[in-house]
Simulated assay, not measured.
Amino acid sequence: MLQTFRWIALVEGVTTLALFLVAMPLKYWGGNPVLVPPVGMAHGLAWVAYVAAMAVCLPGKGFSASEWARTFVAALFPFGTFLNDGLIRRKMAARGPA
């Protein structure tokens, strides 16, 4: 389950980058807002999937309250899910092979 969560976190992080580094600059600097709605919706769905995956994938996996908070806060900041990946990988390693 933690590998599934890592995949969802990667998708959430990539959609954030696509929104901030492609769609929004194209809108504000290029005058072409065509990518903002689809990329924004993809990012919104990925964010909801990330939070839902927290509720499904993380219980019983040895996360402390502060690690839960860190994992949630990671989804609120650009690059946060990438920075939090080390924690998820350590938890996976501590649990051994799936």
Rank of each mutant, 00 (worst) to 15 (best):
G80P: 02
V36N: 01
C57D: 13
V39D: 00
A93C: 02
F82D: 01
A94M: 08
A93K: 14
T81N: 14
A55L: 14
L83I: 15
A46K: 01
A94L: 12
T81M: 00
I88F: 07
A98L: 12
A53F: 02
W68K: 00
A9Q: 02
K91D: 08
A98N: 09
F63R: 01
A18L: 15
L35I: 08
A49F: 10
A93I: 08
G31R: 09
W7K: 13
R95I: 10
W7F: 14
G62L: 06
P25E: 04
P97D: 13
R6A: 13
L17Q: 10
A55E: 03
A18R: 03
M54L: 14
V14S: 04
V39E: 03
M92E: 15
G86S: 10
V56R: 15
L45W: 12
L83D: 02
L19A: 04
T16P: 01
G80N: 05
A49R: 05
L10H: 11
T15W: 02
A49T: 07
T16G: 11
F77Q: 07
A94C: 04
E67Y: 07
W47Y: 15
G96M: 10
N84A: 15
W68F: 11
M24D: 01
L76Q: 08
V39L: 13
L35H: 05
Y28R: 14
R90C: 04
W47S: 10
M24S: 07
F72M: 01
L21T: 10
A23E: 05
L76F: 11
L26I: 13
P97V: 14
V36I: 04
A18S: 12
A75S: 15
D85V: 00
G80H: 05
G40L: 04
R89E: 13
L35C: 05
I8C: 03
A69K: 12
T15K: 07
H43F: 08
A74T: 02
K27F: 06
A52S: 11
A55W: 13
A18F: 11
A52I: 15
P25H: 05
M54F: 12
M54E: 06
E67P: 03
G96H: 09
R6M: 13
K91L: 11
L58I: 07
N32H: 11
A42C: 09
R95D: 11
A49E: 01
L19F: 14
L45D: 02
L83C: 09
A98C: 02
A75K: 01
E12S: 11
A93S: 13
G30E: 09
Q3C: 06
V73R: 00
L2W: 03
L35M: 14
V22Q: 05
K27Y: 04
A23P: 02
L10G: 12
L10M: 13
S64Q: 05
L76K: 00
L87H: 03
T4V: 12
A74V: 00
A75M: 00
A53V: 04
S66K: 14
A55C: 12
L21V: 08
G40I: 09
L45Y: 09
G44T: 09
V73I: 15
R90W: 07
V51F: 13
Y50G: 03
N84L: 00
G60F: 10
I8P: 01
A94T: 06
A98G: 13
